[in-house]
Design a protein around this nucleic acid. Structure first.
Lengths: 336, 336
DNA sequence: CTGTTAGCGCGTTCAA
DNA sequence: TTGAACGCGCTAACAG
């Protein structure tokens, strides 16, 4: 028994104030079932005068239906994820669903903890990043009856629905595009590839395409940090010290590529002609640069939108899993 | 009565499997109360074999204590707020609290809806942005027994605790600093001041300081959008068309200021000597520019940290409200 | 150290 | 169109 804090106003209090039963109030508030206009008005009146605040917790417990959505992202520092989050939020805005956010720092063990914690809130769906998870995470998500949406990657076997692109293909497309542009001496700058698994896949696709087409493997600088502007800046400085005669550098993400652009601006390197810079993601920040960044658009906005549409109309788990490939496209900027 | 989906595993199932009572399982899982090592082990074993997932909803309902934290931000596009969110997240990480995010688009009516929805989840605390809210929002927050933390602004009367800085003072400090640097012909570029109330306060402080010290009022360009890099870029182009002989332009935020810097780079305007650029926030992105941005650091990280510390040890509402001024400091960059 | 009992506040089912 | 009773899954209080 809980010390019934008599300050808390419940459905019952509203019901008494309106002279109806609790369930009637409940029906008015959820706009479910037939209610006469007269009682509806009286109830809403009573809600106002009592200052009643709905308790969804109890509602969810009783109905076994929640409108929380778990959103699990690797990071909020990398510019991509705030954009993804913004996209999800927009799509969610009208729906009455509330996002609960968890951040994993690209750590699959942390992801496991966050997923467990999310599930304990009985969300209507879980949106998480990538297709690789710990064994336990996978088990938990497979065993749950709610929808599980894996975003940003379409290069593998999903638990339920995956929405994204093949990062391996994006990597090869980058190589192909830059070879066609005439570049031959490649550099690569990226984050810790053990942690950022999608960067890892792009990197693989990129390297393989080069070697398969008789181009020398790229000179590489791999930071131990995750993606950041300053990381890209320092990375390029370092790479050019090691190997000054590169003619193009591919960055694992726009964040890092922007850092590369800054380095060129600061040191007077001519973008595109003297040194090509190529990113990944197609962030607004890259396109707002003095010279718009050459990069790959990952259609994040659509990914967020489709992710939400996937469960918004049907919260029940489908029998077969599905991959939705939202593809990617090359942005012909002015830096490569 | 709900159709009891017999697939859901409850405390009771675990209890049966372990041959103990439900409350014992509960105690083990919450590490509360004295439990013998033997039963603890047996219970944890049973949890594993049954694949039990804790249901916090029911727990919160029974104990009237939740560990959700409502975080309400105006936007996720403006670079500041992802950083604030990241700060809050870091501080929250160890604590077992989970953030629920709401976005208001700088709209006080949307804020009201979001607050109402947040409260219905019985969070342990609510963190929201700024000190200005609709009458209803204020009423709801005043009537709730949970902690309400208003961040980013210290220039007014808080509901419970406010953590931030005086934006008016930051505005005057900007003016003072730039006057001391020798600038005299001021421009100002900002977003819709009706929506971004903190930008509004800074702008006021800035203008008043100038006129009080006999400097001509700034030439202004006010966008109807909220803060963005491209907005700053276009704003500066437009402002210089109107008034080419400015010697310094103050931007309402780093985002917009970065756009201004880009315009200068693209058109060959010498930063600092030919035209000063000054921002607000001290974002990492501004400091990573080829020439670090001159701006004001708003100590967002500390704000997030203090916000969390405020409620983490004591969730009960204090009797008196309090303002914690985290201050600000000028970043002597290379753009003004 | 462990169990019993009695709700937390709401929504579902079924009856009126 | 409205209401009564029951229970969702868990935990506080008290007893043993």
């Amino acid at each position: 028994m809980t010390k019934r804090d008599d300050a808390t106003i419940t459905l019952k209090d509203v019901a008494e104030a309106a002279g109806v039963s609790g369930i009637t109030v409940s029906r008015v508030l959820r706009a479910s079932g037939p209610i006469s206009e007269a009682t509806r008005k009286r109830v809403l009146e009573a809600v106002k005068t009592t200052g009643y605040v709905h308790n969804r917790l109890a509602g969810v417990l009783a109905s076994a239906r929640s409108n929380l959505v778990g959103v699990i992202l690797p990071s909020l520092s990398n510019g991509v994820f705030p954009e993804v989050m913004a996209g999800i939020n927009e799509a969610l805005a009208q729906s009455g669903f509330q996002p609960v956010v968890g951040v994993t720092d690209y750590d699959l063990m942390k992801e496991e903890t966050v997923v467990r914690s999310m599930l304990s809130w009985k969300p209507a769906a879980i949106i998480l990043t990538g297709l690789q998870h710990s064994r336990n995470t996978r088990r938990m998500l497979e065993d749950t009856p709610i929808r599980v949406i894996e975003i940003m990657d379409a290069g593998g076997r999903p638990i339920d629905v995956a929405i994204g692109l093949s990062h391996r293909d994006a990597g090869s497309a980058t190589a192909q595009h830059l070879i066609e542009k005439g570049y031959r001496r490649f550099g690569y700058i990226g984050p810790d590839l053990e942690r950022d698994l999608r960067a890892h896949d792009r990197h693989e696709g990129f390297r393989h395409y080069l070697t398969r087409h008789g181009i020398a493997a790229p000179v590489e600088y791999l930071s131990r940090e995750t993606s950041s502007i300053s990381g890209g800046k320092e990375g390029l400085a370092e790479l050019l010290r090691m190997k000054p005669d590169l003619d193009v550098v591919v960055f694992s993400s726009d964040d890092m590529a922007i850092g590369g652009v800054y380095h060129c601006i600061a040191t007077g390197i001519q973008l595109k002609t003297q040194l090509g810079i190529f990113g990944f993601n197609g962030l607004d920040t890259g396109q707002s640069l003095p010279q718009p960044l050459s990069t790959i658009r990952s259609n994040r906005h659509r990914i967020g939108q489709i992710a939400v549409e996937t469960f918004i109309n049907d919260v029940t788990r489908p029998l077969t899993s599905k991959v939705i490939d939202t593809g990617f496209s090359i942005i012909h900027g002015e830096t490569a």
